[in-house]
Nucleic acid binder design. Structure first.
Lengths: 195, 195, 195, 195
DNA sequence: AATGAATGAGCCTTCATTCAT
DNA sequence: CATGAATGAAGGCTCATTCAT
């Protein structure tokens, strides 16, 4: 059977995704202690084969973080593009970010990676830059909310920190045996950030 | 010449504290990857000597977590015992917990420990129990605040989660190159939890 | 190219045997002080690789002991099944057990293991049980000898101890610079146990 | 109180003996794994203090072995000097050597030491030399027995090996949970070596 | 592409030995 | 003389990474 380069490329992408999905799950649960062989097993291939898709464990970690940050950015941009008040957009963000297992995973992974010395400074810089971009989106939304009167007053930068912190940590809660965050919690959160 | 047992004992206590302080700093920064030799170097002794005070790296980790949780509990109890409104007490907690490097450290250590499989179930149970005790103190304070009108309405349990999350994560921020959390941020936080 | 699972399995078995052979030699010579890296070097592979076959040094030790005990048991059973007088069977046992390097090794290993606290009680129990089984075979042979008149009178249990002791210790002699045990020595031994 | 040099020297000797007794017990039970701190504890002093009597663990091991070999030699010489047949002397040796815990201990210690590389060649040579001296005593006794007709015929050197082996290993049996070697066993042994 | 055998750097831990008190 | 704090060499074990098949 002659090779099909396009199909081949698709298969490669799928494999990469499988590995990253597995890695995200495991990194979040086991942190730095996650072994390549764990990832390989979770993704259903041999550990040696993983190296045909990523050249090191660090590269996998970076890819997991990047994907998570970009995904969070998409949620933010999607919400910003919606019609409705800023509060509505916040609700949307909370609803999308919270139940998304991958988003939750990523936050802890990122925390650990940023703290530990497993990443070099250049890599940390890139990660912080992407985090900054997401944060600017959140600031934008806060300013919008302060103008349409659905968000409390105060320095938007500081508020972005507080809000970001709240959202991200709620994600963690779900993973710690706490009852899942539901609509009720989201409404409490909305009251907190409301004027 | 036989030594002075009293003085010896004092020195031992000091050494233990030195090690725990060093460990708390490093565990927070490097997580599980922290090496015993790092801790020893930071504490100013040889790696072998550490084992005269703790019988394993895991025991050090547990001790660090315990000390942090108890310290956080003290802050909570101290605030509850104060005169003034619940809001005043919250301010007090935020002021004490935030700048306290050890409190900050401990939260991340705890998160990582709870996630990773480096602790067995029994140990995790104990940690969760202590966390629960602290949480009940926070719930108590929230209920007090809802009665004296300085805290927003809502299920106290859920609010405790949100507040706890906020406080603890603010601690993390300080460690991540963010500008230190000052009075201004605390006031924003107070507005969020106010009625 | 996916490998040939059958061939792989064969190679694995061979490797395991190589490691056990090396370990038997070294344990006998160096006792507990034998290093995994010694075993690996003697077996011709890296120390890390040893752990793909055995999960700890202790497991290797146990395997060496087991193999030796089973091998000794085979010799005993083989002799018992022979035609001829009990004395002939004893000769056969002495001839087979003595020059067999592995049998010799094992006895010292076993002695050391049984004495030292490196094995837990359950493991010691299993070893003693296998030793007991071998001893019962020897007792059986002694009783046979007492009936066909080729073995001296006396409590078979006590005699089994003495004979076993003799055989096993002769094995040790070969390893201690003594001249090898030859037919002549075997005949002396036969006279000792004769009526 | 003025020092008394003679008394001091006596105390020193007593201490040394205490340490050697403790070491002999532990070396026999735990082999090479015996720790200096174990010996110190068993002897009732601090581990540091041991070094005021012996300059290394190896020196202790050598002293234990030497003492044991000399003690065995004394038993042999004592028996040789007795009145009576060679058989009587053998009985005497068996009776004295077997129940003497220290004699038993020493044999295994010696075996382990000789095999392991914990002793250098010169030390091994000395030990073998002392063993040879004891062996010559045994050979002498065998020859005496062959003349007075109480010991079987055969090359005295080989017989010495077999008898030595028997006696020494019987000592080991006592330590392995076997029932203690009694008069009955000794008589069996005598029959074996008899003509 | 796919597997898992193989390697070796590196970390935890133990323990002989030294030394200040 | 006595103690035990302190050090560091050394060995068990893990795991990222490479590579033959």
């Amino acid at each position: 059977m002659p090779r099909n380069p396009v199909r081949d490329q698709q298969l490669r992408e799928e494999r990469r995704k499988q590995i990253l999905d597995a890695a995200a799950r495991l990194f979040a649960r086991q942190g730095v202690l996650t072994k390549i062989s764990d990832i390989a097993a979770e993704a259903g291939l041999s550990h040696g084969h993983v190296y045909n898709y990523f050249k090191s464990k660090e590269e996998i970690l970076l890819a997991v973080i990047e994907r998570g940050q970009l995904s969070y950015g998409s949620i933010l941009r999607g919400a910003l593009a919606m019609a409705g008040t800023a509060a509505d957009k916040f609700r949307q963000i909370a609803r999308q970010a919270l139940p998304n297992e991958r988003s939750a995973d990523i936050y802890l992974v990122l925390l650990q990676a940023l703290f530990t010395d497993q990443l070099n400074d250049e890599e940390k810089r890139i990660i912080r830059e992407r985090a900054g971009a997401n944060r600017r989106l959140l600031i934008e939304l806060i300013e919008e909310g302060q103008q349409d009167g659905t968000v409390m007053a105060g320095d938007p930068v500081q508020l972005a920190t507080l809000f970001g912190t709240l959202i991200q940590n709620l994600m963690l809660l779900e993973m710690r045996g706490h009852p899942p965050v539901g609509e009720e919690t989201i409404e409490l959160l909305m009251q907190m950030i409301g004027p």
